[in-house]
């Protein structure tokens, strides 16, 4: 279970800081479909073991009466607060609000210049 939480923090950090999905249109005479601009993890970067911060996980056990035998999910929930936490940390540090992920250095520089 700890792994589910820490894995979610990891994925959240990736989404918050680096994983950008960019799309492009194939030419008309091909299918004109919307496809990934960078279909490779060289450009679509995810955090590596070097980027992962320490995480303190505290599990609060509270059964969910609507789940089978009181069970509830643990996987995706911890992912969602990471993006606002990172954006708020940036605001706290340099005073600009980035309301779009990933929160990249370019966006912060641009916001600071304005």
């Amino acid at each position: 279970m700890r792994g589910q939480v820490e894995g979610s923090v990891y994925m959240g950090l990736g989404e918050a800081l680096m994983e950008e999905q960019e799309f492009r249109r194939l030419p008309k005479k091909l299918s004109h479909a919307l496809v990934h601009k960078f279909p490779s993890i060289l450009e679509y970067k995810s955090p590596t073991s070097l980027d992962m911060p320490e995480v303190t996980t505290e599990l609060i056990e509270a059964p969910d009466p609507r789940g089978p035998f009181g069970a509830k999910e643990v996987g995706q929930g911890p992912l969602l607060p990471i993006m606002p936490a990172v954006a708020n940390a940036v605001y706290d540090a340099v005073g600009v609000r980035i309301d779009e992920i990933p929160v990249t250095p370019e966006k912060i520089m641009k916001a600071l210049a304005e």
């Binding site: 700890r2 820490e6 994925m11 992962m52 995480v55």
Partner: peptide, 20 residues
């Protein structure tokens, strides 16, 4: 050194800490 050694192995699920 452990972090460094496995930095070429992406893991999508664990967040690495339990691997260390």
């Amino acid at each position: 050194q452990i972090r460094e050694a496995i930095s070429g192995n992406l893991c999508r699920c664990t967040g690495y800490l339990q691997i260390f």
